[in-house]
């Protein structure tokens, strides 16, 4: 009974999740429980399987073994769409945007899917998208939130790298997710952009459950209440930032990886 209750309270539950690619074990027997509203950081050296784990959670890649539950509901075999309906949203490590479209159009597409059921199908085909004030104002609102208010009519391909990352987050937020998977939102950002992004993530409404992959450990520890460390596809440590920082195994991996691969830790 106790297990059932904790399952329902947890937004995301992974049990024994494994996936290998052609004999290489990318994710091995991962158990992960993220309670609703928690900020969880997923850290680990390059190739630890962090992004693969995200792809498994969203259903973009199917699992070999194990179970994935959102709010206690088993969705292991379900397609991406069903998981999104339960409030799952993600950003991508390398910006996955609609490059030939404007900022507003990018965010509109996300906002539209969220409120779409209220409009008729025929109108969706023939009525100008600009005549949907609700979604348009939502798009402007989100653009302002992620700091792109002044770039609203700019084509995505003309934005800077930092702005791409902001738009990446904007698209996901416009979809109003309850569980947010952020795949290295700070990758390649300047110091100032990093501060902006960190504040933005920390300022997200408290009911949103956030799992963030972050290379910079200090940033990860600042944002997250709990940290899970992934190494060679396995979770090797879990706990508060202080506990993880004190963990011998984690220290070893990070000294090792920063010696062999300085870039990843930077």
């Amino acid at each position: 009974m106790a297990a059932m209750v904790s399952d329902q309270k947890s937004a995301l539950t992974l049990k024994g999740v494994s996936r290998s690619f052609g004999g290489i074990d990318a994710v091995v027997d991962v158990d992960l429980v993220v309670p609703s509203g928690e900020r969880r950081a997923l850290i680990g050296p390059n190739g630890a399987g962090k992004s693969t784990l995200f792809n498994l959670i969203t259903g973009e890649i199917s699992v070999d073994h194990g179970q994935i539950c959102l709010y206690g509901q088993d969705l292991t075999e379900d397609p991406v769409q069903n998981r999104i309906q339960l409030g799952l949203g993600r950003t991508y490590q390398s910006s996955n945007l609609f490059m030939q479209m404007t900022v507003q159009e990018n965010i509109f597409l996300a906002a539209w899917r969220r409120g779409e059921r209220s409009s008729s199908k025929l109108r969706t085909l023939f009525r100008s998208w600009k005549k949907y004030p609700e979604q348009c104002s939502r798009a402007r609102e989100v653009a302002a939130l992620v700091g792109l208010a002044e770039k609203i009519d700019v084509t995505a391909s003309e934005l800077s790298h930092g702005e791409h990352r902001q738009l990446e987050l904007g698209i996901t937020l416009a979809h109003d997710p309850k569980i947010l998977l952020l795949d290295e939102p700070m990758a390649g950002l300047s110091a100032n952009e990093r501060i902006f992004m960190t504040d933005l993530i920390m300022g997200l409404r408290s009911h949103i459950t956030v799992v963030i992959i972050e290379h910079d450990i200090e940033t990860a520890f600042r944002i997250a209440g709990q940290v899970s460390v992934l190494h060679q596809g396995r979770i090797i440590a879990e706990g508060s930032p202080a506990q993880v920082r004190a963990n011998q195994g984690v220290q070893e991996i990070y000294t090792l990886s920063s010696e062999t691969d300085g870039e990843g830790y930077a």
Partner: peptide, 22 residues
């Protein structure tokens, strides 16, 4: 110029993203 048109251009620019938006 309809939302449908935006959706198609969305598919053109990033199919994975469109799928991820449901």
């Amino acid at each position: 110029r309809s939302p449908f048109g935006l959706m198609l251009r969305g598919v053109r620019d990033s199919e994975t993203r469109m799928a991820m938006l449901g």
